[in-house]
Amino acid sequence: MTQLPFMGRRVLIVDDNFTDRLILKEMLKGLGFTDIQEAEDGAIAESKIDNAVQTKNPFHLVFLDIRMPRQGGLSLLDRLRANSKTHDLYVIMMTATASLENIEGSLKLGVNDFIVKPFNPDVIASKVKAIQFK
C-alpha cells in the first residue's frame, strides 16, 4: 500500500467565508490530507491551536485569512509567532486583496507563504508540495 505524502498531517483552515473554507478543504482532500479542521475567525482558531498543542496533536499547517471578524489573521499570526510552542507552525496567509500593506505586514510577522483568492488548485498544490514538514 502506498503512503500518501500528507497522511497524518493536520491542517487548520481559518476563514470567515464558509464557501472559501469548503473549496480549500476539497482541494486539500484531493492532495491527500485527511485531518482538516476549520475555524471561522482568529479567536476560534487560536483556541483550536492551543488545544491541539496541549493534547500533543499539533497542526502542521494553517491557512489563515487576513481579514476576519473578532480576531484577524495578522493578529493571530503575531500571537502564534510570539508563542514558543507555535512559533514554527507553517502558516500560509490568504487574502482577496493582494495589497502591498497586507503582504508586508504578513512578512514582517513571519508568515511562511502567501496566496491570493480566488483559490487556484495548481497554486495550492505547488505551495503545499513545497513545504518541508517536520
Rank of each mutant, 00 (worst) to 15 (best):
Q3N: 10
Q3A: 15
Q3D: 04
L4D: 07
P5G: 05
P5R: 06
G8R: 07
G8M: 07
R10Y: 01
R10M: 07
V11D: 00
L12C: 01
L12Q: 04
I13C: 08
D15H: 03
D16F: 02
F18Y: 14
T19W: 06
T19E: 13
R21K: 06
R21Y: 01
R21C: 03
I23M: 08
I23F: 07
K25Q: 04
K25A: 01
K25Y: 00
K25N: 04
K25H: 12
E26P: 11
E26C: 09
E26Q: 14
M27V: 06
M27R: 03
L28Y: 06
L28S: 01
L28W: 02
G30V: 12
L31S: 00
L31V: 00
G32H: 15
G32S: 11
G32C: 07
F33R: 01
F33N: 00
T34H: 14
D35N: 13
Q37N: 13
Q37G: 13
E38D: 12
E40S: 07
D41E: 05
D41H: 11
D41T: 08
D41V: 04
A43E: 12
I44L: 11
A45T: 05
A45H: 03
E46V: 02
S47F: 03
S47Y: 07
I49G: 00
I49Y: 09
I49C: 12
D50P: 09
D50Q: 15
D50W: 02
N51M: 14
N51G: 10
N51E: 04
A52V: 03
A52I: 04
A52N: 02
V53Y: 09
Q54S: 06
Q54E: 07
P58L: 01
P58G: 01
F59S: 02
F59D: 02
H60D: 12
H60S: 15
H60I: 08
H60F: 10
L61F: 01
L61P: 06
V62Y: 00
F63R: 02
L64I: 09
D65L: 10
D65T: 09
D65C: 06
I66W: 06
R67W: 13
R67V: 09
R67L: 10
M68Q: 13
P69N: 12
P69L: 09
P69H: 11
P69F: 02
Q71V: 12
Q71L: 08
G72T: 02
G72Q: 07
G72C: 05
G73K: 11
G73Y: 00
L74D: 11
S75I: 12
L76G: 14
L76H: 09
L77A: 06
D78S: 14
D78L: 08
R79D: 10
L80I: 03
L80C: 13
L80A: 05
R81V: 06
R81A: 11
A82Q: 13
N83E: 08
S84K: 15
S84I: 14
K85F: 08
T86G: 12
D88M: 11
L89D: 00
L89H: 03
Y90S: 03
Y90L: 03
V91L: 11
I92P: 04
M93A: 13
M94G: 04
M94I: 08
M94D: 03
T95H: 04
A96R: 07
A96Q: 10
A96K: 05
A98E: 14
A98V: 08
S99Y: 15
L100T: 14
